[in-house]
Amino acid sequence: MVAHVSLTVNGKPREVDVEPRRLLVQLLREDLDLTGTHVGCDTSQCGACTVHVDGKAVKSCTMLAVQADGTTVTTIEGMATAEGLHPLQAAFWEHHGLQCGFCTPGMIMAAADLLARTTEPTDAEIRHAIEGNFCRCTGYQNIVTAIRAAAVVMRTGVAAPSGAVQGGM
């Protein structure tokens, strides 16, 4: 049995035929090759698979692909624009908010959801908002710093200096 799913992903309309049991995360990774969304668990704990569905952060391993029919999905690959990185991406980079990077896409998507709701979050609010996203590398400290810094940029358009310097690319 095959089900048909129509959805918009990162601004592009997509049509996919899936097995009914296919998860949204599998549709993104396997059918659309958007491998920036990761799978870190099998019990919906880790948050590595977090994407936005109709503007809200969702763990894409908890949703069937068929449930995403008719929705608009944004993944980490859709965060940067022609103007450059999303302020959260830039802040994670600037403040060393990632090490292995495996949790990072989900973490950024969860943080983006928070900043859409709250423009001036406290550290406690930030820590609460990413409670469903595990990071085993950073101890969360620089992630919290990065989200706080991104909030400032999104509010004021100005980035506070972090002391980090640009190396080579």
Binding site: I76, E77, Q89, W93, E94, G101, T104, I108, A164, M169
Partner: peptide, 10 residues
Amino acid sequence: KRVEDQRLIS
């Protein structure tokens, strides 16, 4: 700032 982050944040 880390060189590897460009790909990992994207």
